[in-house]
Design a binder for these strands. Structure first.
Lengths: 175, 175
DNA sequence: CCAGCCATGTAAATCGTTACATGATTGC
DNA sequence: GCAATCATGTAACGATTTACATGGCTGG
């Protein structure tokens, strides 16, 4: 149900083609809900079948044709219904911890190498989030207001990455 | 592949029936990898078919019969192979953030109520983790050593829950 | 007597990943 | 020429969730 919610939420902001939606996905809701183009196109087909979105074929020259999807009234109602439902708190689901659980079976260098890789990844992601956060801070008040709620999610992202980063460093020092 | 890794890791510690493994699952690897009894039983069938575990029927009186699974040499090799593979860093995947992204469509009280629910959940989980951590600290050094790596995963769990808790409180104050 | 623990499974549905597939245009 | 961007899809497989199913024993 969450992918549906994510797509409706994106269409609520602005109509777009599957391709365009995927770009926007990656730079917004994608930070806390991932998908692929295959899944997204399938979801859009489903939404269209259920009459929650309208679809318009748009011919372009120099580029392939595209299908622009728009949220309609039924879709907006569905979005509100989904938003009204409860979201269960997410739990950690991470293969690295699974490996660490059996860490005594692995050579220390292998573990350290993997921790280093993860540390770098989290560092990069953190840098991305911080950049976005700065850009948001730099917006004029009127525009910044529109990003109030997305901004809260970004803040969690920053705290989340900081936590992982700190942990990677601490564990590397302890094993 | 991760469920397989989790089950092999548990069997590496100690043999057990599907039912017993599920109990242990919930109190160890279940903190960072969730499963259901259906999935676990299916996985055990698969491991047996592939000759990675041995199975012994054990009749009990007053209780249903059970099947005790033991990791064999092939299983241990497979475990090491899986451990040697890379684990990709996990990303956030949380429906609450998805809802918050479209927070402007929801009444403030609904959001606050949901945040409060999540705060309580994270508080409870944190308390559980801290209790386990204390129990580990109280162990005699010889025993505590055996929990060195699982203890590192527990520490992430504590940091993770603290982060969410802090975020829930901050966001509740800002919306 | 009812709830909960012990112990195992089948089946269906949904969701998610990976592989395969096409084809024009733009910039280096 | 080659890679990247734009734009859309099918198919197979694997993972996960939810529902259905059984049945004895124990404690309040």
């Amino acid at each position: 149900m969450s992918l549906k919610l994510a797509v409706l939420a994106l269409l609520d902001v602005e109509p777009g083609s599957g391709y365009a939606l995927l770009q926007r996905f990656r730079n917004s809701v994608g930070f806390f809900w991932q998908t692929t183009h295959q899944q997204l196109y399938k979801e859009l087909h489903g939404l269209l079948e259920n009459g929650l979105v309208d679809c318009l074929d748009v011919a372009q020259d120099g580029k392939p044709d595209k299908k622009v999807y728009t949220l309609n009234a039924a879709g907006a109602t569905e979005l509100d219904t989904l938003l009204a439902g409860v979201a269960s708190p997410s739990k950690i689901r991470d293969p690295l911890l699974l490996k660490l659980f059996s860490g005594r079976r692995l050579p220390r260098e292998a573990l350290l190498a993997e921790l280093a890789t993860h540390r770098e990844q989290h560092k990069r992601t953190l840098a991305t989030y911080r950049l976005l956060h700065e850009q948001m801070q730099a917006m004029p008040p009127g525009k910044r207001e529109r990003y109030h709620f997305p901004g809260q999610t970004l803040r969690l992202g920053i705290m989340y990455e900081e936590t992982w980063l700190k942990w990677c460093e601490e564990v590397a020092g302890e094993i």
